[in-house]
Design a protein around this nucleic acid. Sequence first.
DNA 1: TTGAAAGCGCTAACAA
DNA 2: TTGTTAGCGCTTTCAA
Lengths: 337, 337
Amino acid sequence: MDTKIKDVAKLAGVSVATVSRVLNESELVSEKTRRKVQEAIDAMNYYPNATAKYLRSRRTMTIGVIVSDINVSYYAEIVKGIENMAYSRKYKVIICDAQNQMDKELGYLELLLNRTVDAMILITPLVADEVITDLVDKDFNVGVIGRYIEHPGVPCSLTDNVKFSKEVVKHLIDMGHRSIAFLSGYPDALDSYERLEGYIKALREHQIPFRPELIESGNFNEEGGYAAFKRLAGKEIPFTAVYSANDEMALGVYAACAELGIVIPNDMAVVGADNNRITKYITPKMSTVDQPKYTMGALLAEKLIDQMNENKFESQRVFKVDSELIVRGSSDLAING
Amino acid sequence: MDTKIKDVAKLAGVSVATVSRVLNESELVSEKTRRKVQEAIDAMNYYPNATAKYLRSRRTMTIGVIVSDINVSYYAEIVKGIENMAYSRKYKVIICDAQNQMDKELGYLELLLNRTVDAMILITPLVADEVITDLVDKDFNVGVIGRYIEHPGVPCSLTDNVKFSKEVVKHLIDMGHRSIAFLSGYPDALDSYERLEGYIKALREHQIPFRPELIESGNFNEEGGYAAFKRLAGKEIPFTAVYSANDEMALGVYAACAELGIVIPNDMAVVGADNNRITKYITPKMSTVDQPKYTMGALLAEKLIDQMNENKFESQRVFKVDSELIVRGSSDLAING
DNA sequence: TTGAAAGCGCTAACAA
DNA sequence: TTGTTAGCGCTTTCAA
C-alpha cells in the first residue's frame, strides 16, 4: 500500500498531528519541525489521501457545474471561467453535461446530497426555482448563471437580456428597418423568452406593430436557424432584418441566405447574440452582442467559494454584468466586410 | 447532521451491514429485508455519504480529463463522449483545463496520486511519454487521446493524422494544384507535426518539391490562421491552395482572403480539418476531414473503466479510428456553395 | 441470510 | 509548539 501519514510521522520523528499541520500549512509549527517533516514527505514521495481528508474535513473542495451542452462555445467559456477561478482557490470542477434534459439535471443534483461536491453551479437550468431554493434551505450551496432566483442564499450571475435585445432592435430600426424577424432559441429557455421580450418592447416603443408571424424558433443551433429562416422566407411576408437570439442560429441564417441568393446586409440585415469568436471571421462580419461569459463564470465561482468559507458573506449576491452591442457589416451597409 | 446509515439501520430494525448491502445491490439480501430497508431509506430521505464510501472502498468513481482548452469544439466534443460514457457507468468527470501549459498538466496529474480520481485521461498532452508510463508502472490508470504511447498498460485513442493529411493533399493535387501551402498548429503539438508529415509525404509521392516557405504556424485558432495567411500572401510566392491543420485556422484564412479580395475556391482552394459544425454553414462550405471525436472519447472512457473493473482486460488497447475527407465548395469548383 | 466489529487515512479537539 | 486520541460514515471480512 501507499505511504501514509503515519509512516511520514515515524520517519520525521513527530506525531501524525504535526505532519497534518505541515500539510495544511498551519502556523502552529516551528520552522525546524516543518523542514524536518517536509524532508520526510519528499523522501517518501508521500501524497496525502484526498478521500480520507474529505471524509474527516467534511468537504471535497469540488464544485459541480451543470451545463446543457459543453460543446456550445457560450457555455464552454463560462465553464472555463469557473474552472480557472476554482483552480486558483484549490477547488476542482466536476462537469455535468445534462444535454438539455431536466431529469439529467435532477440526477446530477444528487452529487450535492451525497456530498460528492461542496457546491453546485447551474448554468441556465431547466429545473424549477423551488428545486433550487429547497436545496439552499437545506444548507446546500448552489449558484445560478443566466437566471435570477429570488432567494437571499443563491448567488446569481446574469446579463440583462431584455435590455440588450431592445438595443439590438433599436439599432435595426435606426438603420431603417421596419419589418424585423426574431429567431428564438429553445422554447422553454429563459434566455429565449427574455430576448423575445426585449424585441417586443422595442417594437412597441417605436410604434412598430408586433407580428407574430415574424417569430420562429431555432433551438439555438445552426441547423435550427437555417430551417427557421427558410420557414420565414417561405411565408412571403416581407421583412428586411433578422435578430437571432444567438450567433449559432444567425450563422444558419447566413447559410440560408447564401442558398436563396439573399445578400447580407443589402437585402437582409442580421444580428446575432453572444459574440462567438467566429462572428469576426465570417463574411460579412456578424453584428452581435458581447457577453462577458468568462467573467460571469469566474465571478459566480468566486462568490460561491467565498460564501462557503464565510468570507465576505454580506457582499453582493446578484451580478448583473453588462453586455455590449457590437455593430459589424451584417447590419450596417456603411461598414466594409 | 444528516441521516446516516446507522439511523436507517435502526429504523429498519437491521444492522448497518444489511443496509449497506441494500445500497450496493448485493444479492445476499432477502427480498423482504430489502423492501423494509428501502422503506426506511425513503422515509428518512437518506443519501449515503459518498466521501465515506470512497475512503472505505478505495475508489472515487471519478475520472479526470486533462484538456488544453475546453472552449475548442474539437476537445469539447471528445469530453462530451467521455462524460456521457462515464455517466452511463456511474462515473463522474473532473475537467482539467490545462490551458496548453505543461506545468498545469503536471499539477492536475496529482489528482491521481492523491486518489481524488481513479483514472486520468489526457487529450493530446504536452507532458513527455515517460511521465505517463511512470504513472502506469505505479499502477495508476491513465488513458491518452490523440497520441500513441508505447506501453501495454496505456489505452490510446487515435486518428491517423499522416494518412488523412496525405488524402487532403492528394485531393488538392487532383484538383490541379501544384503549389500548396500548409498551416500548422501549436509548434509542439503532435497533431501539428503529424499533419505536416502527411503533407510532406504526399508532395513527395507526387513529385512536387517541398517548399518550406509555404509552411506557417497558426496556433490552431482563427486569429493565428488569419495572420499566417497574411504572412504567406505577403511573401509573393505563388500558391493556389491551403491545407490548414484545423478548421479554426481555415476560417481565419477565409477572413484574410475576404480582406485581400481573394475568392475561394476560384483563386484559392482551402481545406481544413476536424469537421467543426460551422464548416457546413459558411460560404463557401468548407472542405474538411471528419474526426469521430465523440466516439474517440467514449471508446477510451469505456476501455479505461473496463480495465479498472478488470473486465475484458485483454481486449484491444489502441483504437485507431477512421477519419473521412469531406470535399465541399472551398476546394472544388464543381460544387455549388 | 444476517450481524458484529475492524478499520480506510486523515483532522481536530484537547491535553501537555 | 507538539502529541494523543476519538471519530468522520461507510464497506467488508468473519462468524453465526
